[in-house]
Computed example of a mutant assay.
Amino acid sequence: MRALPIHLEAGSDLRASLEQLAARESSSGFVLSVVGNLSQASFACPGLDEPTVLRGELEIITLQGTLSPQGVHLHLSFSDPGCQVWGGHLEHGSLVLKGADLLVGFLEAGGAQTEAAAPVSQARVQVSLAEGCAWSRRTERLLQGLGLPYDVVAAGPGPLPQIRIDGQWIGGYNELAALHARGSLQALRHG
């Protein structure tokens, strides 16, 4: 692992800065630590279609998750001036107030990373997603929350998201949620 200290200036978009860093480094990694504050926090709460946005002097408490050249999956928690704690999935529009210092750990090429990246995925779930689509974000959160591996694939004709299990088209988010409610997705975790 290679640790890289990062300083973000006032006005920097926290998520966009980390996406750009991962793309520039052409490497996958994770956030090791963070200290700083935000003037605006944009985060996704479970069950809501749109991100929640709070403004003010917001102190970052934690930022954890993964980053790669393909994107980031980060969870943010922060406190407002009344010391109420908020949090959720980090979205674009989370702006640094005075500054933020992060330590990002990048995986080195070779070893376990190369071994893990080499095999073609055998995920039983394939999804086609649309950038900025609330239903696509819900689909990813449901699958990630259940710990189900999935592949993102090119979309066919029709609305997104599009979901296939074992090559069979099942529909979109509502159909996936119905399978989850019936307990039908549990078996996908183990084979």
Rank of each mutant, 00 (worst) to 15 (best):
G71V: 03
S94K: 03
Q84L: 12
T52Q: 14
I60Y: 01
I61H: 04
R55H: 11
T52P: 05
H92I: 00
G65E: 06
G11D: 07
G29I: 08
C83D: 11
L54H: 09
L67F: 04
R15T: 01
Q84I: 12
N37Q: 08
S27D: 14
L63V: 02
G47V: 06
L67V: 09
T52F: 13
L76E: 00
S33V: 13
L32M: 11
L32P: 05
G82Q: 09
L67S: 04
A44I: 06
R55C: 14
V85N: 07
L21P: 09
S12A: 15
S94C: 09
Q20A: 15
L48K: 12
E59K: 08
G29L: 07
P69I: 02
G71K: 15
E19Q: 15
S79W: 00
S68N: 13
Q84G: 07
S39F: 02
T52S: 12
S68Y: 01
F43W: 14
T66K: 09
T52E: 02
D80Q: 06
E25V: 11
A44S: 14
P51Y: 05
E50K: 12
A22F: 00
S26E: 14
G88P: 13
L76D: 03
E19I: 02
V72H: 02
S94W: 03
D49Q: 13
